[in-house]
Computed example of a mutant assay.
Amino acid sequence: MRLLFLGDLVGKTGRNAVIERLPSLVDDHALDFVIVNGENAAGGFGITEEICQDVIDAGADVVTLGNHSWDQREALVFIERQDRLLRPVNYPKGTPGRGANLYNARNGARVLVMNVMGRIYMDALDDPFAAVERELDACPMGEVADAVVIDMHAEATSEKQAMGHFLDGRVSLVVGTHTHVPTADHQILAHGTAYMSDAGMCGDYDGVLGMDKEEPINRFLRKIPGARFQPATGEATICGVAVEVDLNTGLATHIAPLRLGPNLSETIPDFWN
């Protein structure tokens, strides 16, 4: 089974690039399941119902969120009726929406997707390790799910790596989001789980984490907030990670980064050919 995970969509340029190119990626490379992190899709902060639906219509099977989940207040309402939108599973009990769900892939496989947020330098949510463990107990790979994907939305690489090793052999993929810079540590861990510390972002890399350069530089120089951060509007680069999963085990057989666009070196997974 071929999985594709795309990193944080940042603003109009990032989401439009994905909406335009995702349909051909799905068709040309026979992708079975696609997950997109959309927490920065609406002007760099949160997601709207219209944007969420546009991304799903383009070929995303699931859209995940993170610390900007509620920046667009309408998300608190429409997430209840949109079962393909996930917020972090370790939000407190009673938070709208869901943090994990089981979906059917194009090839008929059952895929459990989970969104979880780290706690180091982030909002103090519930324990992410305990939250993931509870969801896996309820929907174990090989019994209920054929594959399991974890979007670990976190600041600290150490916390992401710890989650990868904690889940090694029990899930198909642990991939980090939030820092907007693709890492070079894509690998299959010792017991068969694919791992990457950060998938990067889908946005303009001629900026600061997808934002226009001027205001972030000003804040570093003067230590005084000026204007609101605005997404950079140059041509976007699409970044993510592709994984091939053996459905007999649920474990990964291949992993490779995907980068399409300017500023970064382009790469397409060789096992897609």
Rank of each mutant, 00 (worst) to 15 (best):
V111W: 09
S69A: 15
G7L: 08
M1K: 08
I217G: 05
G44T: 11
P92L: 05
P269K: 12
R219P: 11
L173M: 11
G169A: 13
P88T: 11
H178C: 01
N16R: 15
Y205K: 00
N248M: 05
Q72M: 11
V241Y: 05
R15L: 11
G164C: 12
D151Y: 02
P216A: 05
C139Q: 01
A138G: 09
T233V: 12
L76P: 00
L3N: 09
S172E: 03
T249L: 01
E215T: 11
T64Y: 02
M196R: 13
V245H: 13
R222N: 10
V245R: 09
V10L: 00
L173A: 08
L260W: 01
M1L: 12
D32T: 03
H180A: 13
I224T: 14
A227Y: 08
C139I: 04
N263D: 10
A75N: 10
D168E: 14
P262K: 06
V34S: 02
P269H: 12
A130K: 04
H191A: 14
D54I: 00
H165K: 13
V175P: 03
M122S: 13
G46V: 10
Y103G: 02
V149T: 04
A252C: 07
E155G: 01
G142W: 04
S197K: 05
E135A: 13
L25S: 03
E74Q: 14
V144I: 15
I255Q: 00
T233D: 14
E159V: 04
A60E: 07
L76K: 14
